[in-house]
Simulated assay, not measured.
Amino acid sequence: MKNTKTCSKCNSKNIIRIPGKAGAYGSGNNIMTGMSIFSAVKITRYLCCECGYSEEWIEDKKDIDKLIVKYNNRY
Rank of each mutant, 00 (worst) to 15 (best):
Y46E: 14
R45E: 12
Y53M: 09
I58A: 04
S12H: 03
Y71N: 13
I16E: 15
K21I: 09
K2R: 13
L47F: 10
N30G: 02
C10P: 07
K42F: 04
G28E: 03
G23S: 03
I18D: 09
E59L: 13
K66F: 13
N3F: 09
C51V: 06
L47S: 12
D65R: 15
T4Q: 04
G23R: 00
E56F: 01
G28Q: 01
G28C: 00
E59I: 15
S36Y: 11
G26E: 01
Y71H: 08
L67K: 11
K21W: 06
T6L: 09
R45Y: 13
G52S: 04
K2W: 09
C48Q: 04
G20L: 04
K70Y: 14
A22D: 00
T44D: 13
G52D: 07
I43T: 07
C49Q: 15
C51I: 10
G20D: 00
T44A: 14
K66S: 03
I18E: 08
R74Y: 15
K62G: 04
E59N: 12
A24T: 05
L47I: 14
L47E: 15
C7H: 08
N3H: 06
G28D: 01
N11Y: 02
S27R: 04
N14S: 03
I43V: 11
E56L: 06
K66Q: 15
N72T: 07
G34C: 06
Y53L: 06
I18C: 12
G28W: 00
K9R: 08
I31Q: 02
N14L: 07
E50L: 08
D60C: 07
I64Y: 15
F38D: 02
P19W: 02
K42V: 07
I43E: 00
N3R: 05
G20W: 00
K66I: 06
I68C: 10
R17S: 09
N72L: 14
K62N: 04
I18R: 03
C48T: 10
T4E: 12
Y46T: 03
K13S: 12
E55S: 08
E59H: 10
L47C: 14
M32D: 03
T44W: 05
N14M: 06
N30W: 02
F38R: 04
I16G: 11
W57Q: 00
A40K: 01
S12K: 00
C51Y: 07
I68E: 11
C49T: 13
L67N: 15
K2S: 06
G28H: 03
C10T: 09
T4P: 01
W57H: 08
K61N: 05
S54M: 10
S27I: 01
C7D: 05
M32E: 04
K66H: 14
K66M: 14
T44F: 11
E59D: 15
C10Y: 12
A24W: 03
C48R: 00
K13Y: 08
N29Y: 07
T4D: 07
N73Y: 12
C48Y: 02
S8A: 12
S39F: 08
N3A: 03
C51H: 10
R17C: 06
Y75L: 12
I18G: 01
K9A: 08
D60P: 02
I43D: 00
N11S: 12
T6R: 11
G28T: 01
K13F: 02
G28I: 01
C7A: 06
D60W: 05
G28S: 00
K9V: 07
M1G: 05
K2E: 14
G26Y: 01
R74H: 15
D65A: 15
S54L: 05
C49F: 06
E50T: 13
